[in-house]
Nucleic acid binder design. Structure first.
Lengths: 359, 359
DNA sequence: ATGAAAGCGCTAACAG
DNA sequence: CTGTTAGCGCTTTCAT
């Protein structure tokens, strides 16, 4: 890089202005593609910028004009609690690149959420005015407060999940309540009266929705809710297996909805085996999956597809439009899960998981 | 968030200072964990910061003190030319998280390099003073100029590759020259005199090193270099197959070093088949891989392991130390490839690729 | 079409 | 231990 007239390493708009013989404001106008500069002056300024490799100080710009530096990505819960899979993060990443890459944006990842459980604040990138927009990449806790502040901040954002406590929240989500209702109603429609549910995401919004949907299906069929037929598990195979075993210990249970969100066929099979039951013979199974036309368990009577990636894709696109002023917030994307009861062929793949499972 | 005395949404150190009855500088000292503040005042300031959810403006800090916001990651060549695999990028991210995550850092990823071939400048994050440190995640072109400016900038950085034109460059790399020398020398040691090399990364430093290493092995054995025995290919299976076929069309060739870096067993087999030759029967093969104890082709006489991940891991660790002032730059990590001529069992896995291959 | 002045929020340098 | 002043590089506001 050429050094400027004052011998510094970095050129500023003042240096450019002095060299050309105009004011800093004129250089600023050129930098921001604004009018009010004669074509000849503009050309000379651009040529000098090119020659010396001028680049604006992104922090100074953010300080003065509130045009922050990055498209932010943050996780609303520590990795130990909701282990968003690397594959899903990468998918998000790729999608953000497709949407924002050609516009010369930077992506900012808040690494803190990975690490700290205490004093957990996933909005740092916004408070510190680093993020000009933000993707909240995961389910929120039922009592989440950070999202309220993000919502009020005015920064375009989209959460990959809804929140009962903030219905106006900008979100691109899947309707888990309807998923749970559909799953249980499907079983009831097939003549089952004792339908168990293996839930997931206890303490998080998707967990609340699961329970509500399940109860609604029972209500609609006039069946009383029995809390013993619902169990919430985490993301480890042993936990999934234990949950299944405990539910199936009740011989009156003839139907199980795997709404754990773990896509863990091994855990399901293990639990059934421990209870001395065989999937598809002794009881019917609906298993939830984030992948279309993939089978968690081939012997399942049906799969419920949760189009999370599809919702996220739409959310990211609308986030870009919001950021560019082509639409207003908040974003309201809500996809309905799809129940698929076609028999699964031998070749149907195991889903790529959205969350990591500990074996 | 509580609003401050002047009714603004964001609190500044001035607002905190006024509320407590001290100067802004005192608040700044507390913010930066510096001495010179009485314990009682410090406690009151911290309490108020906590109460109102104060967060510093990261851009203002960067402007004044040159403490930039993010640990940067950037790609020195467009994805079309060097398709760094998503798996490797993710590995890098995970490693950066392990190293920096607990310190509340942000990761900054330059999306621009993905998109534009023209006006390609992978150093934007540094010029714009967004990056406080930078990982250059991929091989550099032989005529790379950007790295020179990065090197001069004073920002701690590490490139995952060396560069002849800038030997003092901060790098965490694998010695491809020695890899090529080892591979060819191994073949010569087994009695071969006509050793072909399928190269990769033409126009990039790793390509230059491959050629130099190959020639050195021949020199050391007193064998004349024949340019017809070397072919450079890209990252598509058809290209790999064509390169192999063209080399093997010469019946005097009895040894092939696959230094393509594609880990593409299918392409190698296809090319051999097209030439009417069988690996391990009609000619011997040494295949290069980025994975330890994985087999690109089971029939290969040997595999050369390029410990790129291992070098990168060490580079990232030293980058963290450099950034924290626990050591000086530049970083000089150079790992030597390891030739492994043990027979590969049936169960040995195909390597996870470091670069994407187009089928 | 262009410029002068002010100030965004923070910290370095210096003063007490 | 604490405060004052100035200024980082840019853009806003207002003037010409």
């Amino acid at each position: 890089m050429l050094s400027n007239s004052s011998g510094k390493a970095h050129w500023t708009i003042y240096d450019i202005a002095r060299e050309i013989g105009v004011s800093a404001k004129t250089v600023s106008r050129v930098l921001n593609h604004k009018g009010g500069v004669g074509p000849e002056v503009r050309a000379r300024i651009l040529a000098l910028m090119e020659e010396v490799g001028y680049q604006p100080h992104i922090g100074a710009r953010s300080l003065r004009s509130h045009q922050n530096a990055c498209i932010g990505v943050t996780l609303p819960s520590p990795a130990e609690e909701v282990p968003v899979s690397q594959g899903f993060l990468l998918w998000i990443f790729t999608y953000l690149y497709d949407t924002f890459g050609s516009q010369g944006e930077f992506l900012g990842f808040d690494l803190n959420p990975f690490a700290t459980v205490e004093g957990y604040d996933y909005g740092r990138g916004i408070w510190q005015q680093l993020f000009k927009a933000c993707l909240i990449a995961g389910p929120m806790r039922s009592d989440d407060q950070v999202i309220v502040r993000i919502h009020k901040s005015g920064v375009p954002y989209v959460a990959l999940g809804r929140l009962d406590s903030l219905p106006e929240c900008s979100s691109a989500a899947v309707d888990y309540e309807e998923g749970a209702r559909l799953s249980a109603a499907f079983m009831i429609g097939r003549g089952h009266r004792r339908v168990a549910m293996l839930g997931g995401f206890a303490g998080f919004q998707p967990g609340v929705e699961r329970l509500r949907g399940h109860r609604r299906a029972l209500d609609e069929a006039g069946i009383a809710y029995d809390p013993n037929l619902v169990r919430f598990v985490g993301f480890d195979t042993a936990g999934v297996a234990a949950g299944v075993r405990e539910l199936l210990a009740d011989p009156t249970i003839t139907a199980l909805v795997d709404a754990s969100g773990t896509e863990n066929g091994a855990g399901l099979n293990e639990g059934a085996q421990q209870a001395g039951r065989v999937i598809g013979r002794d009881f019917e199974l609906v298993s939830w999956t984030y992948a279309h036309n993939a089978a968690v368990v081939r012997e399942a009577t049906a799969h419920l597809w949760l189009p999370v990636r599809e919702a996220a894709a739409q959310g990211i696109e609308q986030l870009a439009e919001w950021l560019q002023g082509r639409r207003e917030g908040p974003i309201k994307v809500l996809h309905t899960p799809v129940l698929d009861d076609r028999a699964k062929e031998h070749e149907v793949p195991t889903p790529r998981r959205l969350f990591d499972v500990k074996d």
